[in-house]
């Protein structure tokens, strides 16, 4: 479980997250909406533990541990994984090597890469000259290798071409144990009970909702979390009347 209590965060001198409370239970997927600059990425980076996001109040608990001041790699080892929107290029480090770094044990990198149509890129430097869509597939591939328990997705569908969007959507769904295409002798109820993976997904376009059945939606506006309700409902509301009007329901 991820539990965020009264979290306040500053970036430099600027207050960017105000009194955030958020709880993601094992097996739950949350969608995070919000206009540009509202603090969505900052929230993910804070959960991941980026030191420039300075926690000035409140705390973050994960799997019962207070991780508020834990280093990034300790959080990764504890089971938090993030898909970045604009990850840095690391020269001389091949994508294949990066996938191996992500995996805690030996894995079949080629088989994994094939799933996201990324075999051709394994020999390239990680993120070097990748298009927006290629970055998403690379990030997804890294997360597949990492096999975290809490997945943080920063706009996983932005820049992805139509051909790959269902691919990405379905893989995310699979990572989060929501893939209904999987053959199983178990009933849906049993499978539902077995879900443990948690997800927090930022989306602008809402495309991801066509592939991933999410449990809750939240709107982050000006550093504060407002609505918490059915993500489809929020998405439709934003689409029709815009963020400002939409968050009125909460105020």
């Amino acid at each position: 479980m991820l539990q965020i209590e009264d979290l306040q965060v500053k970036l430099g001198d600027k207050e960017i997250l105000r009194h955030i409370d958020l709880e993601i239970l094992p097996g739950e997927i949350h969608i995070l909406f919000g206009p540009n600059g509202s603090g969505k990425t900052s929230l993910l980076m804070t959960i991941m533990g980026y030191p420039q996001y300075r926690v000035t109040g409140g705390k973050i608990l994960f799997k019962g541990q207070d991780i508020t001041h834990m280093s990034v790699n300790e959080r990764a080892r504890l089971g938090i994984g993030m898909s970045y929107q604009r990850p840095p290029t690391i020269h001389g480090v091949k994508t294949r090597q990066m996938i191996e770094i992500c995996a805690k044990e030996k894995i079949d990198v080629d088989a994994l890469a094939k799933k996201v149509n990324f075999s051709e890129f394994l020999k390239r430097d990680v993120n070097e000259g990748f298009s927006g869509g290629e970055i998403k597939r690379s990030e997804l591939l890294q997360l597949m290798a990492q096999d975290a328990d809490l997945f943080l997705f920063d706009e996983p569908e932005s820049g992805v071409d139509l051909e790959n969007i269902s691919l990405i959507g379905n893989i995310i769904s699979e990572l989060l144990q929501r893939d209904f295409r999987v053959e199983s002798k178990k009933t849906q109820k049993e499978r539902h009970k077995e879900r443990t993976k948690m997800g927090l997904i930022i989306t602008h376009t809402g495309f991801i909702l066509d592939y991933v059945t999410a449990d809750k939606g939240q709107v982050l506006f000006d550093g504060s979390l407002t609505c918490t309700t059915n993500p489809r409902e929020i998405f439709r509301c934003i689409s029709r009347v815009g963020y400002e009007e939409c968050i009125r329901c909460a105020t």
């Binding site: 533990g49 790699n73 990764a76 840095p88």
Partner: peptide, 12 residues
Amino acid sequence: EILYLMSRGLSE
């Protein structure tokens, strides 16, 4: 770049 790799599990 360091933080990116750390978020994949490597120490600093």
